[in-house]
C-alpha cells in the first residue's frame, strides 16, 4: 500500500479530500450541532435527544431509523424547524435558525420545506385540488398561479384526473400521493417524510417510494425520511441509526460519501 501511494499521490489525494470536504460543507443545507431535546422538567425530565450532530447535503436522501421512541420524529421536527432544541444549533443554508424571527421561520418552512406524514393529514371534506393548494394559499400565491401549480403537482403524482374529488373518497395510496403533491407544490428544497409508507401495503408503499426518490433524483430535492422499513431505508443514500436519542453506527462518513459523488 505504502508503495502504491507515493508521497505526491498522497498529497494530491489529501488535497482532493479536503477540497471535496469543503465543497460538501458548502453544500450542506441543514446542519445541526450538539443537539439535545429534553421534555418535561426536573424529576419527570426525559432526554429525547442527547447530543446529536449532523450535516445534510443538498440533494441527499437520508433515512432516519431506529426503534419506536428512540427520538426519530423529535429529530425530524427540530430539523424541520417545527420544534426548538433544548440546546445546540440548527443551521439552514449556513444561517443559524435561532437568529430567525417567527415570521421568517414560517416563511422559510412555507417556501423551502414540504411535509409528508404517515396519517396523511388532509382536509377530508375538501377537494383534492384545495388540499394541494393549501401551502400556496398560506404563502399568499395568487389564485390563478396557485391553481396552475397545484394541477402541475397533481400531474406529477398522476392524480390530475381526481382534482375535483373529495379527499375522503380516495384510497390510502392515492391520499399519500396527494400529500406528496401538496409537499411538492411550492418547489421545496427539502421534503420531510415521517413514515410515509407506514399506513400502506407494500406494493402501494413501493409506488410512493418511487415517487419520492424520483423527485430526489430529478428535481434534486433533499429527502429526509423517518422509517421503520429497512427496505425503504436501504434505498436512501445514507442511513442514520438512532438509539435512545443518539446516533449510533454513524455511517455519516462524509469522505466516503464524497468519494461516491
Amino acid at each position: 500500500m505504502s508503495r502504491l501511494f507515493s508521497k505526491k499521490v498522497l498529497l494530491l489525494l489529501t488535497t482532493c479530500y479536503i477540497l471535496v470536504y469543503i465543497m460538501l460543507l458548502n453544500k450542506s443545507i441543514l446542519s445541526i450541532k450538539n443537539l439535545t431535546k429534553t421534555y418535561g422538567k426536573k424529576s419527570s425530565a426525559f432526554a429525547a435527544l442527547k447530543g446529536v450532530s449532523l450535516d445534510i447535503n443538498k440533494g441527499e436522501s437520508i433515512a432516519i431509523i431506529g426503534k419506536s421512541g428512540s427520538g426519530k420524529s423529535t429529530l425530524m421536527h427540530i430539523l424541520a424547524l417545527l420544534d426548538k432544541p433544548t440546546s445546540g444549533s440548527v443551521e439552514i443554508d449556513g444561517v443559524d435558525s435561532n437568529q430567525l424571527s417567527n415570521k421568517e421561520l414560517n416563511r422559510l418552512r412555507n417556501r423551502r420545506f414540504g411535509f409528508v406524514f404517515q396519517q396523511f393529514f388532509m382536509n377530508a371534506n375538501d377537494t383534492v385540488l384545495n388540499n394541494v393548494i393549501l401551502p400556496l394559499k398560506i404563502g399568499g400565491v395568487a389564485i390563478r398561479e396557485r391553481k396552475k401549480r397545484a394541477m402541475e403537482a397533481l400531474k406529477a403524482v398522476e392524480l390530475d384526473d381526481k382534482a375535483k374529488n373529495k379527499a375522503i373518497d380516495l384510497s390510502g395510496g392515492q391520499k399519500q400521493r396527494v400529500c406528496i403533491a401538496r409537499a411538492l407544490v411550492n418547489n421545496p428544497k427539502v421534503i420531510f417524510a415521517d413514515e410515509p409508507t407506514g399506513n400502506l401495503d407494500s406494493a402501494t408503499g413501493a409506488a410512493i417510494e418511487d415517487l419520492l426518490f424520483n423527485l430526489n433524483k430529478e428535481k434534486g430535492i433533499t429527502l429526509i425520511v423517518v422509517t421503520h422499513d429497512a427496505e425503504l431505508a436501504e434505498r436512501c443514500q445514507r442511513q442514520l441509526h438512532i438509539k435512545d436519542g443518539q446516533i449510533i453506527a454513524p455511517n455519516a462518513d462524509i469522505l466516503k460519501k464524497g468519494a461516491r459523488v
Binding site: A80, L82, N106, R107, R109, N110, L134, P135, I138
Partner: peptide
Amino acid sequence: TREIGLMKAMGLGRGK
C-alpha cells in the same frame, strides 16, 4: 386541531 397543526407546519403564522 390537526388542520391547525398542519397549517402551522406549512408556515401559517399565529396571527393569521
